[in-house]
Design a protein around this nucleic acid. Structure first.
Lengths: 339, 339
DNA sequence: TTGTAAGCGTTATCAT
DNA sequence: ATGATAACGCTTACAA
């Protein structure tokens, strides 16, 4: 538990100046005579001096760090958002602390701990209760929510779901499919809910009630299982198109179809959501809706920074556009691979 | 830039005790009378008091935080390692700081900054020069290297490559393939180098020189491009099996094959490496070598913690086992999907 | 341009 | 069992 390193006092002594001057030099702030500056920098370099993060934070009442809280780290969705967030934060010279709640029961405790070491927090999806978010915000901690409706005193950044879901569903209808089914869990996230809403609205306008859906969470294995139930029926009752709430579910459906020698899109059409890297690489290439993962994270970082710097107090809510990516799985003819 | 919150002094005053007693109570350390304890805890709860991270760190000379440095965040490989690392760290109540170098030129600067805010560092692959690693270690900072040979005074954790690569290559030879080619860049990472070494050794023992390889980095698009050159030759000169240095390259090869109506494994066999989640889900399912990403990260966290706590000084080098996953792309018959 | 000194909010060592 | 109080290493008025 050593880890000492030279302090500002040693630098000051060796350079023959006061610690204030070292601090000024080091932070390029205030005024320092060129000659003094050279001398100090030389000593700093010689000693390999680095200001202690803790001491700086304490004195300046600033951590130069922000945290991001998510359900888990792996998986293309979260990894993409983190990368966007991290990339932007590092550019602003802000340290990035991450915390995966992994459905832990004492997540609240962990988040409060985290909150004590950062200047602000980005919170994703279903991680912690609204009450906690509100408490943090009320305590004066800048908070930005991603893929989750804003709470008083917080900003949020989300991507568009409703219209894209409607466009996607209409596209499927234009193919002439009569029997569509939605695969996903509207209760799992606001995003999923809106995708469902869009599907439901268009489907109802066309066919009336009921609107068919099979509940299934975001995992490939869940999509695989759910697809099993859907597909193992008489061919004339089998859906002609499956609208999956995300790409991973769609991959599960593809696997289930493969096992049953059902061809996509000939025997059954399929769409996903997210446009993860593999979506364009599987066969058939997946028709899906792209959302800007990177930008989701980067925007959150930017909004948070504004608040941390006190540049803004009013709430901002950002809605990022999504894009329908038509490939082959919906029944459209391919125009070649597509990376 | 507000963010104050009650301090230990306020708690002490309201509870009618000294700050020392509050500290003891809060940290469950030393001795506190039950009655006093109740009173203090009550006030803490009432005020929502949380000790300042910076102040604690400064006083205790301990950050309760460790950093992880990687080239980038996204992609199944790094995301998996991060998740394993984070999961274990959080269990130990250690904050997790992440830094992606993204090939930034001033990565050194960023890493030194990071080093000032943590108790130890995990460094992955090709991120920062050995000289810097050595400097950090010499300065007394605990460092653990992942997928990278240890430097004096650091630990490392890696996964086995050489034997698995040999086993994989032999498996291909057992299929009777005569023309094999390796797709990857031995200079890109120690892992890639060892995979190549294994392939080369077996191939040379069987066929002598030269051992065919096409250089290609770890990306799908690179695999796709490289495969183009390999495949567009007379069928009798076309390789019968491609050994890709990782799964993403293999996915690129699959795409290139699809475009040329080459069937895997009938027209050409293919193997990957890593066993990313999609490897078992594509068609044909990819024969590959699984490495324990999660465990790679978790082990690094554990080793680092030992050093940080001063529990150990001697170097430890951990080699994690990998596992050959035979699916269909090598030419073996499927036994059904496989998630 | 530079130095002095008062914090910053804890931890931890002594006394008591 | 509790309380004073000296660190911890820096930032930042303010004075010189």
């Amino acid at each position: 538990v050593a880890r000492s390193g030279p302090t500002i006092y040693e630098v000051a002594r060796r350079a023959g100046v006061s610690i204030a001057t070292v601090s000024r030099t080091q932070r390029r702030i205030g005024t320092v005579a060129p000659e003094t500056r050279r001398r100090v920098l030389h000593v700093i370099d010689e000693l390999g001096y680095r200001p202690s993060g803790a001491a700086s934070s304490l004195a300046a009442r600033r951590h130069d760090a922000a945290g991001i809280v998510l359900p888990n780290i792996a998986g293309p969705y979260f990894a993409g958002v983190i990368e966007g967030y991290e990339s932007r934060s590092v550019t602003d010279r802000q340290s990035v602390l991450i915390l995966g709640t992994h459905g832990r029961p004492h997540a609240t405790e962990l988040v409060l701990d985290l909150a004590a070491r950062v200047d602000g927090l980005v919170v994703l999806g279903r991680t912690i209760p609204d009450a906690l978010v509100r408490q943090l915000a009320d305590d004066g901690l800048p908070v930005v929510l991603v893929a989750r409706p804003a709470v008083d005193g917080t900003d949020d950044v989300r991507s568009e779901n409703l219209n894209s879901a409607m466009a996607l569903t209409k596209h499927l209808l234009a193919h002439g499919y009569q029997r569509l089914v939605f695969l996903g869990d509207p209760d799992a996230s606001p995003d999923a809910k809106e995708r469902w809403d869009g599907f439901e609205a268009v489907h109802r306008a066309q066919f009336g009630d009921p609107v068919p859906a099979v509940r299934c969470d975001y995992r490939e294995s869940s999509g695989y299982r759910a697809a099993g139930n859907i597909l193992d029926v008489a061919p004339e009752r089998r859906p002609q198109a499956i609208v999956a709430a995300n790409d991973e579910i769609a991959f599960g459906v593809m696997r289930a179809c493969r096992e049953r020698d059902l061809r996509i899109p000939d025997d059954i059409a399929l769409t996903g959501w997210d446009d993860v890297p593999m979506a364009g690489l599987v066969a058939p290439a997946l028709t899906t809706v792209a959302q800007p993962l990177h930008e989701l994270g980067a925007t959150a970082a930017a909004l948070l920074r504004e608040r941390v710097r006190g540049r803004r107090t009013e709430q901002r809510r950002v809605l990022l556009p999504t894009r329908l990516i038509v490939r082959e799985s919906c029944g459209c003819r391919s125009q070649g691979g597509g990376a």
